[in-house]
Simulated scan of single mutants.
Amino acid sequence: MDLLSTLAGFLVGTIVGLTGVGGGSLMSPLLILLFGIAPATAVGTDLWFAAITKIVGGTVHHRQNNADWTIVKRLCWGSLPAVALTLWWLSSHGHKAESGGMIVRVLGVTLVISALLTPFRRRLALRFARAEGARTDAFLRWQPVLTAAAGALLGTLITLTSVGAGALGATLLLMLYPFRLNAKRLVGTDILHAVPVALIGGIGHAVIGNINLPLLGALLLGSIPGVILGAKLTDRLPERVVTPALAVVLLIVGLRLLK
Rank of each mutant, 00 (worst) to 15 (best):
V106I: 15
I200C: 09
R122P: 02
K96I: 08
N210Q: 05
G22K: 10
A50I: 08
G133K: 13
L34A: 14
L18D: 01
S5E: 08
V56C: 13
I32P: 05
L181E: 10
A183W: 00
G13C: 07
T243W: 10
E239N: 11
G108I: 09
T53N: 05
S5Y: 04
L34M: 10
I228V: 15
D137S: 14
D68P: 04
G169Q: 06
L174Q: 09
G133W: 04
V106N: 08
T53M: 02
L7G: 07
P244Y: 09
A170D: 10
K96E: 12
I32A: 06
V72P: 02
H95D: 15
T243P: 13
K184F: 12
R121W: 00
A8D: 01
R130A: 07
L199S: 06
V242T: 08
A150L: 00
L34P: 13
G100A: 11
T156G: 13
A138F: 13
V197C: 02
T19K: 13
V253L: 15
S5L: 07
A183C: 00
A129D: 11
P39F: 13
S5K: 00
G254W: 14
W89T: 10
L220S: 01
L176M: 03
A51H: 01
L116D: 04
A150Y: 00
D68I: 05
G36P: 01
V241R: 03
G101Q: 03
L7C: 06
K259I: 15
K232I: 13
E239V: 12
G13F: 03
A51Q: 00
L157K: 02
V207T: 08
G94K: 05
